[in-house]
């Protein structure tokens, strides 16, 4: 007689045992990304690497929830958009000016606060759902907010959105400067990435992984699993908020199209292509996506891009359910000639 378990199993989550190479590999990658702009054309720096980093941040907010909590949320692009819209509504110089006059130094924290609050709200609304139902409810929230913004003229200027959100000056330089944008995005991404790796070692993060593996046991050990879960969505909202801010400054504005269904699906595609096994997968997936997005349009006509990225998406999901990271992991094992570890089957 088996006991009913409330175990959370997405099959996507990687086993969270520490790997010794994660820290050195991450630092090496950071070093490469710091010097790369010196040798590649500015177009690549801003439109390929910079854009990949910004999308990667938003995708990482999804990966964080999926890898460590077992929750796949489709609301992360919308949550990012909340931060972008908050700033766009507040800052001076935006067209049309809705509130205006609030300096970036105030508007940016407010944007992050709004995204965190929206993350918490999404988490609270979806707190009882799992798997496909969680996908559906987060998608519904994303589409709902998108439609609300698109039809609300007074606050969000409807379909047209808000233009001329140029971003703050950093060290006296305009944000539109390629290198200011790139290095800001890189530093933000590196800090958020480090934050994720740190958080999952804390009691909060360990309990989150406990919820992924066995929510019933987490409750039996004294945790309020539902509150924990909502808090994790809040952290993911904070991460997505940074991505939303950077995307808004990069695009010099925000419109409903940037947070619509298409954008939501793009984030999912990036996260899955890269692999939902480790936060770095989000950035790998985003880079692959951006490269195809940029060059497929030259090779084919624009419309074929979706076919191409869709085919890649399918191929990756079929070949390696845990994305490029999973392929890399398997190659690594092959090279070390170590057989893949077999999980012990729990007898009844």
């Amino acid at each position: 007689m088996s006991e009913r378990t409330g175990a959370v199993r997405t099959g996507l989550a990687a086993r969270g045992v520490r790997s010794a190479w994660v820290l050195p590999a991450s630092l090496a990658l950071l070093a490469v990304l710091l010097v790369l702009p010196a040798v590649i054309p500015p177009f690549f720096t801003a439109n390929i690497l910079g854009r990949a980093i910004v999308f990667g941040i938003i995708a990482m907010s999804m990966t964080f929830l999926a890898t460590y909590g077992g929750f796949v949320s489709l609301a992360q692009m919308m949550v990012a958009g909340i931060a972008g819209y908050t700033v766009a509504v507040l800052v001076p110089g935006a067209v049309p000016s809705i509130v205006g006059g609030v300096p970036y130094a105030v508007a940016i924290p407010l944007g992050l606060l709004a995204a965190t609050a929206m993350g918490l709200l999404v988490g609270a609304i979806a707190v009882r759902t799992q798997g496909i139902y969680l996908l559906m409810i987060t998608l519904a929230l994303a589409v709902g907010v998108h439609l609300f913004i698109q039809t609300n003229i007074a606050w969000f200027n409807g379909y047209e959105g808000i233009r001329n959100v140029v971003g703050p000056e950093i060290l006296g330089l305009p944000f539109r400067n390629t290198y200011v944008f790139y290095y800001t995005a890189l530093v933000v991404a590196a800090v958020l990435y480090a934050m994720v790796l740190y958080v999952v070692r804390t009691p909060f993060g360990l309990a989150l992984q406990g919820i992924r593996d066995n929510v019933r046991r987490v409750n039996a050990l004294g945790y309020h699993a539902a509150l924990h879960r909502i808090a994790a969505f809040g952290i993911a909202g904070f991460i997505a908020g940074w991505g939303g801010l950077l995307a808004t400054f990069y695009n010099i504005g925000i419109s409903p199209g940037t947070i619509g269904l298409g954008a939501t699906v793009n984030i999912l595609v990036m996260a899955v292509i890269g692999g939902l096994g480790h936060p770095i997968g989000a950035f790998i997936g985003a880079l692959i996506f951006v490269v195809f997005d940029t060059f497929a349009a030259d090779l084919y006509d624009r419309d074929r891009f979706n076919t191409l990225i869709g085919a890649i998406f399918l191929a990756i999901v079929l070949v390696s359910p845990d994305g490029v990271l999973g392929i890399a992991r398997r190659l690594g094992r092959l090279l070390q000639r170590r057989p893949a570890a077999q999980p012990a089957e729990a007898p009844r």
Binding site: M1, T5, G16, R18, Q209, G210, D213, N214, P343, R348
Partner: peptide, 17 residues
Amino acid sequence: QTSLLFNGLSVMDNLVI
């Protein structure tokens, strides 16, 4: 009766939780 453990984590992490 059927072990309810955190399979993806180490023994140490299970105990710390």
